[in-house]
Simulated scan of single mutants.
Amino acid sequence: MESFLEKFFPKVYTKMKHDTKISNYCKFDSQLLTSFTSSLYVVGLVASFFASSVTRTFGRKPSILAGGAAFLADAALGGVALNVYMLIFGRILLGVGVGFANQAVPLYLSEMAPPRHRGAINIGFQLYVGIGILSANLINYGIEKIECGWGWRISLAMAAIPA
């Protein structure tokens, strides 16, 4: 969203507005923006390795709850972010939530599902993740049109609903 880029990544926003002939791949050339974007994926990968030990030691339910708590903390932090470092820390928490959820939930579903329906229930997890991604994109599309520039805050804070 433009208001998001203007507040946290002003150089990228300025380049995006003024250089209309340059490809989008070149406009978003910012190490800080890259750190913001990739921190979720890197931390999610690392957290999934730790999540297996936590799941084995404490059980499935505490692991799933830890992932949910990380999602909630990210939503709260992202919604009230004052600077880019708060956003990056929120993304790190989101990565922890993704790592724990992607490790613990399919394991829990496999263990509780009747053998006959195990595949269908496990693929349901991926289906709902895909539906969540689609819903988030549709919400962002609608919220982007909010005039006051608070759309990105609402979008980040709304992540608390599924958490």
Rank of each mutant, 00 (worst) to 15 (best):
Y141A: 00
A101N: 05
F71A: 04
L87S: 08
A136D: 15
A73Y: 05
A75T: 11
V98M: 09
D74R: 04
L138K: 09
F71K: 11
D74G: 10
G79Y: 07
I133T: 05
M112H: 13
H117G: 07
P115R: 01
V96C: 12
L72S: 13
G90T: 07
P115I: 14
L127Q: 09
M86I: 02
P106C: 01
P114Y: 15
P115E: 05
R91M: 08
A136G: 15
I131N: 06
R91N: 06
R91G: 04
C148L: 10
G132Y: 05
I92H: 01
M112V: 10
N83L: 03
I123W: 03
A73R: 00
A113P: 13
V105Y: 03
G130T: 02
G79E: 15
I133V: 04
N83E: 01
S135F: 06
A76C: 13
L94S: 14
I88C: 11
L87N: 07
L138R: 13
V96E: 02
A101K: 01
V105L: 06
R91Q: 08
A136N: 04
L127R: 12
I146D: 02
G124Q: 12
A73Q: 08
V98W: 09
H117T: 13
G95E: 00
L93K: 00
A81R: 14
G90I: 03
P106H: 01
Q103Y: 02
E147K: 10
N83M: 03
F89R: 00
F71Q: 10
V80C: 10
S135V: 08
Q126H: 05
L109M: 08
I143F: 15
A104I: 14
H117A: 06
G90Y: 00
E144K: 15
N83I: 05
L109V: 06
V96K: 02
V129M: 08
L94Y: 01
A101E: 01
F71N: 12
P115K: 12
N140K: 15
L87R: 05
S135M: 12
G124L: 08
I143V: 04
L127W: 11
Y141H: 02
D74N: 13
L138E: 01
H117R: 08
I92K: 00
A120V: 15
G142V: 05
N122F: 14
F89A: 04
F89H: 04
I131P: 14
F71H: 13
Y108W: 04
E111F: 14
N137I: 09
N102P: 07
L94R: 11
E111N: 13
R118H: 11
F100C: 12
Q126E: 15
R118W: 14
I146T: 04
G97V: 06
G99D: 14
Q103A: 05
L127G: 15
V80G: 08
S135D: 06
E111Q: 11
F71G: 09
V129N: 04
H117L: 09
V98N: 10
I143A: 04
V98H: 12
V105F: 03
C148E: 06
G97L: 07
L134G: 07
G124N: 12
N122Q: 12
V80T: 02
K145V: 14
G78H: 10
